[in-house]
Design a protein around this nucleic acid. Sequence first.
DNA 1: CAATTTCATATCCATATCGATATATGATTG
DNA 2: CAATCATATATCGATATGGATATGAAATTG
Lengths: 113, 113
Amino acid sequence: MARAATTADAFNAVAEPRRREILDALSQAERPVNELVELLGLAQPHVSRHLRVLREVGAVVVRDKGRQRVYRLNPQALKPIHDWVSSYQHLWEERLELLEDVLADLKDEETHG
Amino acid sequence: MARAATTADAFNAVAEPRRREILDALSQAERPVNELVELLGLAQPHVSRHLRVLREVGAVVVRDKGRQRVYRLNPQALKPIHDWVSSYQHLWEERLELLEDVLADLKDEETHG
DNA sequence: CAATTTCATATCCATATCGATATATGATTG
DNA sequence: CAATCATATATCGATATGGATATGAAATTG
């Protein structure tokens, strides 16, 4: 069996840096395809394909506007990623707190010792 | 050009569900390979390969313990993912707040109208 | 040291890209 | 309706899988 499709879920869709760039661009404003093409410096077919992947996982939605197709971010689609990775947050923060404690102790010793 | 390697970064490494399962298992305790094999129900070579990918992006670290190799989570490696996706959090929360406002208004009308 | 346990690596196969290029579709304009 | 603009889709080539199986390698045991 090969790797899972990029359209399998948001995790796979977002593994591609270009698609993260697209989402970043759309987080500021909705944009037609040609604007994304210019922003990313990619060929138009590539951008369209990336947009298709993002559409299939629900990360973006399209709207027709004359002959343009305007893409808008659907941030909810990223929530599963946030939920998953957030469950690890306390683990790295714990370690940072430990480090801070050690540093505080060292400073304390320096002052009083 | 083909797809980026799974060892390219944490985003790619974590796109695979099995590897997220491994990280989830290691978030509770460090474990030797055979324990992960049993937990995941995968063949041992597959688990070893997934562990290698996770090692290459720094998501896990290994320690020798007799003939076992004990794997431990390195949660810091997931921080870039958290940082990226967190920048979108306010966007979906805004929309939820909007929805809540609308619902509150409807309820208000129902009560006083 | 031979046997066993535990794990890593090497191959093979089928598949899903990602980028490039060519082409088709759809809307707008003259 | 023909020409043009804005996108989407089709195809090709190179590559990176992920699972299956076979084999290596290292540590422990008897």
